[in-house]
């Protein structure tokens, strides 16, 4: 029993995080949100081998488990990455029988599922719909997914939500240190501190269950998604409150992360879908509950 990443895995996660944060800067996201063209990071994803994280070694991939992909998805969420990288590397590639073109970056594909109604328009054709997230260009889709796609989708959307939650807290902390009222930084007031500490705590207690879901699947997948949704909504509402009037505008970057969080809450199974699964398991089923069952 060792529920920690190895040093090698942690290095890989850190490298991916540095890459996302370094390339997908706030300036870049602001430009996209204003409709300006920016250079796609896709060629670099391919070059760094990131698209093949989960692909078999025989297909030229790194053959890493979903739990590692989840940590990378968290990093992608943290940076607010607009490209559908998690989608392709974490969902399409693992279910594809010939992923070479996907890994090399020459093609991009999304997976349809009954758990999603909207997909990035670069990936499939369909009728355009308008998201409040200025970084998402969506089309309406219909389809039936596979268990594996739905499982990966739920875990990876949960992981991205936790990355987004962390980012919203981090930018709120920065804002609270900088913004002065009553001649003091507002972050020195306990009312602000306690709100942020509560969200921090929820984030810390979301990550491990998402990792467990990535490894073990089963009911943990539903717990992971519900938990991530609740944490992200709490993080977003806390962040806007800490930002005060500024948080309600396009003048600060919070809205970019908040809107992405709203989007991901509904994708790959919304709260109702996953909560109903848990309800069946806990209240209606005869599953073994109580100590000693979580890791067995």
């Amino acid at each position: 029993m060792d529920f920690c990443f190895t040093t090698d895995q942690q290095d890989l996660i850190d490298a991916a995080k540095d890459f996302f944060d370094g390339e997908n800067t706030l300036e870049r996201m602001r430009s996209i949100s204003k409709g300006q063209k920016v250079e796609s990071l896709w060629p670099q994803f391919a070059e760094l081998g990131l698209l093949g994280i989960m692909a078999l070694e025989s297909d030229g991939g790194m053959e890493q488990p979903l739990v590692l992909m989840a940590a990378i998805a968290e990093a992608a969420g943290y940076s607010g990455l607009p490209e559908p990288f998690v989608e392709v590397a974490g969902i399409t590639v693992p279910i594809s029988s010939s992923p070479e073109k996907l890994i090399s970056g020459s093609s991009k594909l999304a997976v349809l599922s009954e758990l999603r109604q909207y997909i990035d328009h670069n990936l499939v054709n369909g009728t355009k719909v308008k998201s409040i997230d200025p970084l998402r260009n969506l089309v309406k889709v219909e389809g039936i997914g596979s268990d594996k796609a739905n499982y990966h989708g739920a875990v990876l959307s949960a992981a991205q939500l936790i990355g987004l939650s962390q980012r919203m807290i981090d930018i709120s902390v920065d804002y609270a240190k900088d913004r002065h009222q009553f001649s003091k930084p507002i972050g020195s007031f306990q009312a602000i501190k306690h709100h942020l500490a509560n969200v921090y705590t929820q984030i810390e207690f979301s990550r491990p269950i998402i990792q467990l879901a990535a490894i073990n699947g089963g009911i943990n997948v539903h717990i992971a998604k519900v938990t991530a949704i609740d944490t992200a909504m709490m993080a977003a509402e806390t962040a806007i409150q800490v930002h005060g009037g500024m948080g309600y505008t396009y003048e600060v970057d919070l809205h970019l992360f908040m809107k992405r969080a709203w989007s991901l809450c509904g994708e790959w199974g919304d709260r109702n879908y996953h909560m109903k699964k848990i309800e069946q398991y806990v209240l209606q089923g005869d599953a073994k509950l109580g100590p000693g069952n979580t890791f067995n």
Partner: peptide, 14 residues
Amino acid sequence: AWIDTERFCAATYQ
């Protein structure tokens, strides 16, 4: 309540 105890368990093992 049940969800939170499972989260607490996973976090403690970590």
